[in-house]
Design a protein around this nucleic acid. Structure first.
Lengths: 216, 216
DNA sequence: CGACCAATTGAATTGATTCAAGGTCCGTGG
DNA sequence: CCACGGACCTTGAATCAATTCAATTGGTCG
């Protein structure tokens, strides 16, 4: 609503292999890709629900706030991910660009086949949230970080290096810890020889096995 | 699969007002009601997915375990709730009866309209998980308990009294704390005059306003 | 180069856990 | 009917993981 500095970008065909995404695109009226600079709001809490959003490039965070301003990031969405699916007329969460993201809006066709597709997406998202619940409720800070890094490692195909498009406070609010703890945990993993921080936003996984063991 | 002491009970018509549940029943092949005594497993992690389950009476807990045996209860299901919806061929979580529960199995019709109904259920469940994420990641033990009690108060229509069908360790594993902390938090709420514990499984809410304020 | 924001590190504090000791509830059997 | 046993719950004391607050370092951009 406010601070939306969306710069339209010429429509380009989506290049995703994921057959489910292709189907979804085929069964909806895909719009053009809009560019949202870092920290720009895509939709706010209270905005009308309706359209879905496909991440073409970049990263998006889905946030929910408590009354007194604490933030929980419920998920990060990367290229190929779909977000914006929520019950009710109004969004409960807000979506923000993390690092400059290209977003394609999808106006859902109101067909039954579309619901079937959406159900698939919802269920997949479901499984993610399920394990996020375990992470938040039952893992230590070290385990949370290890689990997060493993997740990124699996999703990115950048070899043994993980790219962190978000800053420490985002990671903290995703993992339910403070950003200082994120720093300290990274140091622990470094000292144990499990990772190497090659840049602020780049981590080399030296011992994936150890990381997975830790992540539980 | 093991320890399943399900005792068939004569089929009785579902008495739920919820139009969505009625629709779901109409569009599936509802089975008879089975009784699962306390702590009986309804399905285990790894069991085949497929049927849905409707809680006719009693309470069900959906659990996920870490490799080393820590447990996170991802949701409690009460009369009228539907569970068992998961992506993939196998269940990631297990479902157990908490206090002796009557469960009706629903074999989904493979119609498109059915997917639409399921999508609705999935999205509603979704919103619940979303706020559970905030609870686990960003609330203090006191706030978690207050939030839990508010939720029960809203769901049950037993006036200002809340019934706890589950034991302390279940609450603990749902809130991401220990059962000792559950006890201590209840004591704090008692000392502040917000609640009164009239029985082990019965809590009178003396000051709902204070509870809601606390809950976030 | 200087200014600013992000990230790291340190020290003190705290909220929650762990471990251990009672207490309460409830069913069972004498 | 009451004593006993076991499971659950409560409470206390010590410990610990993570937070808070504060200072410093590092990186980036005009």
């Amino acid at each position: 609503m406010f601070a939306q500095t969306a710069i339209p970008i010429p429509a380009t065909p989506s290049h995703f292999q994921d057959p489910d995404v292709r189907d979804l695109l085929a069964q909806s009226q895909p719009g053009t890709v809009s560019y949202y600079p870092a920290d720009a709001m895509i939709y706010a809490q209270g905005d009308d629900t309706g359209p879905l959003y496909l991440v073409e490039f970049g990263t998006v965070r889905i946030c929910q706030m408590t009354a007194d301003g604490r933030r929980q990031i419920t998920s990060f969405c990367y290229a190929g991910d779909v977000f914006g699916l929520e019950p009710g007329e109004e969004h409960e969460c807000c979506a923000e660009s993390v690092d400059g993201a290209g977003i394609r809006m999808l106006r859902p066709a109101n067909s039954a086949g579309f619901a079937q597709k959406l159900l698939g997406f919802a269920l997949r998202h479901f499984a993610r949230m399920q394990s996020h619940l375990v992470l938040l409720g039952r893992l230590s800070a070290n385990e949370k970080m290890a689990s997060f890094l493993c997740d990124l490692l699996d999703r990115q195909d950048t070899g043994d290096t993980v790219v962190l498009p978000m800053q420490r406070s985002d990671i903290a609010d995703y993992l339910g810890i403070t950003f200082e703890t994120v720093s300290r945990v990274l140091r622990v993993l470094k000292d144990r020889g499990i990772i190497r921080v090659t840049a602020l936003d780049r981590i080399e996984i030296l011992d994936p096995g150890a990381l997975r063991t830790l992540s539980d």
